[in-house]
Amino acid sequence: MLKIKNLKASLEDEDKQILKGIDLEIGAGEVHAIMGPNGSGKSTLSYVLSGKGGYVVDEGSATLDGADLLDMAPEERAAAGLFLAFQYPVEIPGVGNMTFLRTAVNSQRKARGEDELNAAEFLKLVRIEAKSLKIDAEMLKRPVNVGFSGGEKKRNEILQMAMLAPKMCILDETDSGLDVDAMKLVAEGVNAMRNGKRSFLIITHYQRLLDHIKPDVVHIMANGRIIKSGGPELALEVENNGYADLLNEVA
């Protein structure tokens, strides 16, 4: 599914390398988690993969089912099936959540040469997905993320993910700011989407989320590199002991 080889990326405006050689391979249907200290480059990795401006790739490659991600425009990567649930979802005043969702869904369908969903088909789908995430109709009518609480914004990200049905989902700290019940809802949402063809990369600071969404592999990222990979037990180790030992190990 996702193959990242020796990926190095710097800030465009400063001579500062953030990603210093990432190697990561996620197979179809797998769930990988990335943990790591603040500022280690986790969000940057998600941005470079999804094509956000402000970064330059110095070296390496990233492919999605063989297609060169780094060569595509951000919206093409999205249409190819890459989805990023943002750490900080932005507000778009005046643009209805439903309008936004429908524009997004149909833009991707169009880009893939599929028929656009008509209003009725779309509405039916949204209703089902919104219900399982306990997002009420009122929230769907409001402008995108405007006045949403932190947790509501995160649930809205998962709603978008469910509607867009991507094959590679990156979740950047979707669990931060969620209360216990909301976290369960999000985890259920993710688990419901898990299947043999869809993969997940879950960025998190807490073992908690991984209790609900069981990862196949856990990676520890520090200073722009993946310093250790292992099974779910690695997350427990971090939870109990912090990063100090792991960082010393590589030093």
Partner: peptide, 10 residues
């Protein structure tokens, strides 16, 4: 805001 839209395929 722009990147958010682009990432959703718009």
């Amino acid at each position: 805001q722009l990147f958010y839209c682009l990432q959703r395929g718009v």
